[in-house]
Write a protein that binds this DNA or RNA. Sequence first.
DNA 1: TATGAATGAGAATTCATTCAT
DNA 2: AATGAATGAATTCTCATTCAT
Lengths: 213, 213, 213, 213
Amino acid sequence: MIAISSDNKVLLRDTRREQLLAVAVERFAKYGYHSTKISDIVAQAGVAQGTFYWYFKSKEAIALEIIRVGREGLLMVIERGYPTQNGSVQIMVQGSQRLLKDIFQFGQENRYFMELLLTEGGADETIRQGVRDTRIAMEEAFRRNIERAIEFGMLPKSSDMHMRAALLMSLIEGVMARWLFGPVHPESDLAQRSAEQLAAETVQFEFFGLLGI
Amino acid sequence: MIAISSDNKVLLRDTRREQLLAVAVERFAKYGYHSTKISDIVAQAGVAQGTFYWYFKSKEAIALEIIRVGREGLLMVIERGYPTQNGSVQIMVQGSQRLLKDIFQFGQENRYFMELLLTEGGADETIRQGVRDTRIAMEEAFRRNIERAIEFGMLPKSSDMHMRAALLMSLIEGVMARWLFGPVHPESDLAQRSAEQLAAETVQFEFFGLLGI
Amino acid sequence: MIAISSDNKVLLRDTRREQLLAVAVERFAKYGYHSTKISDIVAQAGVAQGTFYWYFKSKEAIALEIIRVGREGLLMVIERGYPTQNGSVQIMVQGSQRLLKDIFQFGQENRYFMELLLTEGGADETIRQGVRDTRIAMEEAFRRNIERAIEFGMLPKSSDMHMRAALLMSLIEGVMARWLFGPVHPESDLAQRSAEQLAAETVQFEFFGLLGI
Amino acid sequence: MIAISSDNKVLLRDTRREQLLAVAVERFAKYGYHSTKISDIVAQAGVAQGTFYWYFKSKEAIALEIIRVGREGLLMVIERGYPTQNGSVQIMVQGSQRLLKDIFQFGQENRYFMELLLTEGGADETIRQGVRDTRIAMEEAFRRNIERAIEFGMLPKSSDMHMRAALLMSLIEGVMARWLFGPVHPESDLAQRSAEQLAAETVQFEFFGLLGI
DNA sequence: TATGAATGAGAATTCATTCAT
DNA sequence: AATGAATGAATTCTCATTCAT
């Protein structure tokens, strides 16, 4: 019997193509798109320069592929977190916390993709666009979550869904980015938290603000 | 009293230098550090290629200079917003709102610097470091603000100042970034808000969370 | 009598080889030697990249083979057209016309080879040499034709056979090239002529010049 | 007093740009477009690789520039040769001979451009197009010459101007190509002729054909 | 101060050819 | 015979930086 991995991780393994994707996303994240040379990627993958072009049309193409695959995985996680039934605030907080935990875990397991998504602003226009689109899609998913929660009477009505979604996304992106790759103050123990803890604290703030922490 | 030289030469020197800085920060922000060529900068500034090197040692140098100057201005704004006296929650909320408004206004007036600060992750290591340091310094300033507020009994005690500061910074950076340069959903009217409005909504969330909005 | 093997393998072998030759000559002619990639050839032939090298040692080898085969066919046509007996001018004109018609027909049936022969100047030295040799051999054949005609008293003597042959070749090559692949003025109906017509008009000019047309 | 050169030669001198043009046209002609590397050009010109790109956008750009300049010079020569007045056949033959001599001389003085024009079929499509256009323009100029001659009653009427122009162009191109760069039979003394002699013999054939030589 | 031509070290990409299967 | 993945040398082009004037 073959055990199928059920984790969130975007599978990047086995074939040469996936190996190149894995190496590329790591270096793009660590050093940025432009500072990463094709020669670096193939050297780390242990193949010849030309081999890269057997699998990808160009440097841009591999970056877009990384974004495409990562986006799919990420959105799948978020869609799974939809509130689907009526309930108390308590229940909703629990639901939110579970969703955030999943997202943070996804980030932890795909940290290079996440870094690319959250910090890469220096690449070429097509890639910037790909990143932008993914983040907008993510924000959209959250907006729908919030709307659903309001329908179910779990959240007070508000005229501006977009603002709420923006505030949420800001929290999530900012916290995750600091957690995974800083910038973080040397004294802070943020990086040591588990996804679960981080989700709990973030959700607390999300619902009750500074005064409720 | 400081005598300002009225010598044309000196003024021109400063002017030209400022002009190059202004052009550079705009292009760095719009197109990213690597996609911005020295030739683009000098073309837009209307000077010859060599002239650039009279004023700046290198491309990296001008980027670091941009970050240095912007950081000074930004930190000055934040330091001004320190809570300096005891008071009610009401007063603290007002204070926070004023501080946020100032920061958002600074961002509006220095949008290219802000974009560089908030979105440039693709530049070379030295520059990434400069950006990181500035954001850490900013977060530090907020942490001190929060500590002061707790001392004055305006906020409940909490063991993790860093986490609070991180949450705050996430909010501010995320909201400001979306406000000024997206990515933003086409239907959202976020971009139309004044710095004042934006500060009000953000502070509301900051203190009371989603439930309090 | 030569026994033709009816073994499928051998036939397939020949077929595949011919197919690659046919595809190659077409693309060399249409796009030039350098712009034609081995990958283009095998793609159009529907075989794998490696297969090419089972039949041909290299890209250069297939080009030389194309030229060799085409040259044999072309010279065969020309040799057939030799004037072999005494006769009047009238008879010689008819003979010339028949020869030209055969040549033009050969060009029509081997248009890609002809295009390669008449227009490829951009290939590597070995191939240029092959083309040059073929055209010299062709010119030689015409020179011998002219000498024969003079022996038989059908043409006036002249000291420079080579010049006459060069003039003839120029006419034939130029007319055929324009007829088959241009460059040709959009209004011209040159391309619509039959090989027969074209031969008639060319021979007329050949013998009587502009004044005699 | 400064003597202004009044010869036909397209001036390729003095400045770096023109030096690069001169080197490029020579190598394109000698070795073909694709076999000529930018590194060859700059090495022969004695400048750095990057310098090439200060003057020309790309390899294609310099080829097109070469064709553009050469075309202008060539058409200028041909336009000068227009028959402008009525006259006897004798006069027209003289006129034609003078025109051909000028063209041959132009070819001699711009042999590399001429070689490019007459033999380069292997370059990329844009360049092939440039060559084609130039040759069509040339043929057009001849067609107009012939029409004029018919108007003046110097040549018998004929329904197909295009065919006549094609025959003429074939002669001129073929003879010039053989004269300047072969392929030519080793025994032939074609290459030793002067432009004047060549023009005389070609015109003789042009008007009277083989029988009249 | 200012110019702009010149430099040259790379960078991405191409493509004929090889080779294990 | 056939495949197609892999190779790597070669090529075009870029661009930060220098330098003579």
